[in-house]
Design a binder for these strands. Structure first.
Lengths: 209, 209, 209, 209
DNA sequence: AATGAATGAGGTTTCATTCAT
DNA sequence: TATGAATGAAACCTCATTCAT
């Protein structure tokens, strides 16, 4: 039905090929999470995957493609996780709560992956226009929040938000989630439930009429 | 109490030595801000400083020391900027407002420096835990907010905050500020005044009794 | 006399085997001609042949054997083309004319192949003298010219040529032909007829009594 | 007087810098001459120069720049050698003789260098327009011969040459010289004097009225 | 007979660091 | 103090070759 949504460089990939790529991406994520972006060389990734360096080059055109794949898979997984949960809600207030809850749950369940994407994210600025992905991505990630806010305002359930102030709110929520990721990396024993409850409270209060 | 926070190689440093180091740190900041952490090699920094690469190695034991110096100077500048402004306030509500306002003002005035520190922060994972500094740093930066919150609760002006929920609030505020930094890097024409006003509003509401 | 010039791995080769090898050699020639010797990797050749890299390794012991095959096929094709045309001539003067004419015609008709062989020729230096072939080859190619010159002198139709000076003449003619190949590669619209006429004139005059 | 003729990337180069570059270029030439273009890796060149690989990268932006330098130095040396010798001649006939003689002498005295340039030459075709140098170079090298021919025709000392036929003659002479280089590489004991005499004779006869 | 997958050596290049001057 | 020169490790990538299927 909604095929061909994906960029196109999908060509035809054998099952085994896809599995191998997935495995390598997996290892790349682990490696970035464990040793940091800077130290995550192809050699290091290969070592952890117990394969030769050449295998990575065999399956990915270059390092950039591998890293992009991390971001792409993240985005797909994220969207499949978040979207249905939000759509299941009726009121904007519930949507916002679920947005926060499901994002934090997603982070907790995919900590390394999310962390890796954040690590990559800041690199986008550097590149010479090549990694526009980052920016588009950010917009795509903010949009759902802005939509919820707009809906809430429209239904008279949220306090008034001008367009720019809705964006500030959206960014603040997004930053809270990404910041939570970093905190969870630093302190794996963090009480996620509690953290979630608190964030929900904060943004519930701060959007209330 | 707070001795030995600073590396120790403070020993005796001539005026000229200090000036040289400051100049190099300055250039390192600019370089990171402009080309990103990954591309900020000593060679690149030296080129921008119009000095030879060797000079950097002469004044800093190694690259790490230079990067740490960026964080140290940042922290000192930040504290000198923020602390007096907060101390000038009477009520926790005002303190919180001023904390947010002065932080955003500080970011806007020292955008490159703040950005550089954030860049460093996220790359700081090393196998041998060498860059513990960054983490300590984070604690030191959260403390003032937690103190304000505690005070506000104690005076009955803020809603109830348990210790962990105060921390979540503190992190959320901190993340909002750091996130603002990134947004300002991406969009230099951002209306800082407005953004500040919005953040103050958000956190004013969400701490209110 | 001229046995064992060919490597020996001729053994028994099935028809299909020979066809496959021919196809690969063909593609190797095209590849060298189009992307140059340096870029003509087995991968590139395989891609153009629309076969897998492994097939090449299956049919040829190694890359060197494939490249040698290019030279061998060239030599055979060249000889079959040139020899009968010369033998059909009566006088040395005519022979020389036909030698030049047919060589240039051969080049024009097999430009890529001739070019590939020249490319190989110049790269042929190896520490272990493995590609002696090329040198032998050159001798074999010079011989017909030297024979024509000797005949012409013997019949009193050409000016006197000592053995060494006949060799210089032969080399000069040969170099003119190979140089023509390069020029034709650079400028495909070259007027071959005219070029041929000029070369014939030059060497007709310069051998005349 | 005639400064600034050189491309511009000359900037300011210290004496020692120039010496080092010259030494490296020297070694690169030797290496190409001895092991062939294909095997002449930076590692191999460095090994022969008894320096670390990094030194080459320190003095040359990349391999291409090193190789170009070989061609540039060749061209300068060649021109300084040939031009005055030709200009000292009065008649076109003498000029042509001297052109051939001095070119062969130059080749014999700089055999490795000339050979290296020829090796490089054929590679130019490959690159994607980058190494236009080769083509320009060739034109620059043919021009003097064409000028001599034109002069000889104009003075009525040479037989008639149309523009295209003069070019064929020029190419033939040039090819004879380059071919001589290859032959001399293969057979270092070649009698250069004799070879020179023969070539002079050939082209003297073939240009005569 | 053919292929896709994997390997590992080797190539170019970058870079933090050292050192003689 | 400062510099340019040099180093060598390590990064990314290419490629001829091998092998199980």
């Amino acid at each position: 039905m909604c095929k061909k949504n994906i960029p196109t460089n999908q060509k035809q990939m054998s099952f085994i090929e896809k599995a191998r790529r997935a495995q390598i991406v997996e290892c790349a994520i682990e490696t970035i999470a464990e040793v940091g972006y800077t130290q995550a060389s192809l050699g290091e990734i290969a070592k952890r995957a117990k394969i030769s360096k050449g295998v990575i080059s065999y399956h990915f055109a270059n390092k950039e493609e591998l890293l992009e794949q991390i971001a792409i898979e993240y985005y797909i997984a994220w969207q499949s996780y978040i979207a249905p949960r939000i759509e299941a809600q009726k009121s904007p207030k519930e949507m916002l709560r679920v947005y926060i809850e499901s994002n934090l749950a997603f982070v907790a369940e995919n900590l390394q992956h999310v962390f890796a994407v954040i690590e990559l994210g800041s690199k986008k600025i550097t590149a010479d226009g090549k990694l526009q992905f980052a920016a588009d991505h950010d917009e795509a990630i903010l949009l759902p929040i802005e939509n919820i806010l707009a809906l809430g305002v429209h239904e008279g359930l949220f306090r008034e938000f001008t367009k720019p102030s809705a964006r500030v709110m959206a960014l603040t929520i997004r930053n809270a989630i990404d910041g939570f990721t970093m905190e969870l990396m630093r302190k794996p024993h963090l009480d996620v439930q509690e953290y979630t409850r608190e964030l929900v409270t904060i943004f519930d209060i701060s959007t209330k009429k």
